Amino acid sequence: MSGPGDLVARLRAAGCVFAEDEARLLTEAAGDPVPEALVRRRVAGEPLEHLLGWAEFDGRRVGVAPGVFVPRRRTEALVHAAVAELGPGAVLVDLCCGCGAVGAAVARRVPVELHAADVDPAATACAAVNLRGLGTVHTGDLFGALPPRLRGRVTVLVANTPYVPAGAIAAMPPEARDHEPRIALDGGADGLDPARRVAAGAAAWLGPSGVLLIETGAAQAPVLAAVFTAHGLDARIGHDDDRDATWVLGRRPAHFCPP
């Protein structure tokens, strides 16, 4: 077992930038001293959030199990972009929902009909807990997971699709590379393959003037905006300097007739 001083030193030596904060959180979660097995897991690179069982997102704790993608602070920008497009009773779909952090944060601000979906059953198991009383969770591949009655009714479709280029995954921090599911990271050759699939199918699910929001990298955004335009959406790029977040918004024209 590790006492406070020793724990901070070991975390710092392992490369943990916020060693003092991590030591405090581990001590609060597991007691003082922190069990050696837990310390070894963190020193070996396992995400702190997986050890704690939660991640902080949008000012709240959301449950995150080992092997599930950890929501990043930059994705809070998607929450605010979605809320700006929603009113009470609107239909919100959170695709590639992971643990359900985005949908939960939006639904706490606006009373919406929320549907969240992910292809990973481990992720949707977390989402079902985090979204209890807020929305419905579906397991399946993108639009194939959604109930058909939502076609043409969605007000906002938000998707934090994987957007790391496949060739860049090896250079990611081991916390992500070794402990988060590759399916939640790998965006294909240029990082945009999953986003292209969402953009191709979105118009059929959006209602008139409905909005698609996808988080992406700053360098990828112009390419993704062109993809949105090619699928009949009016596209614009958004950026949040404080969170270093970039997204593309695509609005379905009111007159647009999806295939």
Rank of each mutant, 00 (worst) to 15 (best):
G135V: 06
P222N: 09
A37M: 12
P33H: 11
V227A: 11
E20R: 15
P111I: 07
L92E: 01
V227S: 04
E85M: 05
R108G: 10
R251F: 04
D186T: 06
G3F: 14
R132A: 15
A166Y: 00
P121F: 04
R60P: 03
H138F: 13
L25H: 13
G191I: 00
E113H: 14
V112E: 02
F57D: 09
D21I: 09
D21K: 14
A104T: 10
A199F: 06
R12S: 15
R236K: 11
T246A: 03
G67Q: 09
V137D: 06
M1R: 10
W205Q: 03
E22T: 13
L249M: 13
T136Y: 08
P111Q: 09
G87K: 08
A107W: 08
C96W: 00
G144M: 01
R197F: 04
L11C: 03
A9L: 12
V110A: 05
R251D: 05
A245G: 09
P71N: 03
R61N: 02
L52N: 00
E113I: 14
P208G: 04
T155G: 08
A245L: 11
L7T: 03
A166M: 01
V137Q: 10
V79I: 07
G232P: 05
A65K: 08
L131Y: 11
R41N: 05
A145F: 02
G15L: 12
T155R: 12
A171F: 12
P222H: 08
A23D: 05
C99Q: 01
R177Q: 12
V43A: 04
T161C: 07
L142D: 07
V64C: 01
R24T: 15
F228C: 14
A90L: 08
L114A: 06
C16V: 15
L192W: 04
A218W: 15
A203G: 06
P147S: 06
R41H: 11
R41V: 07
A171E: 14
E76R: 13
A127F: 09
E180V: 03
D32N: 11
A202N: 09
V8N: 06
G217D: 08
H255A: 15
A23S: 11
R40M: 12
L224Y: 00
R149P: 02
I183W: 07
I169C: 00
A203E: 06
N130A: 01
A13M: 00
P222E: 12
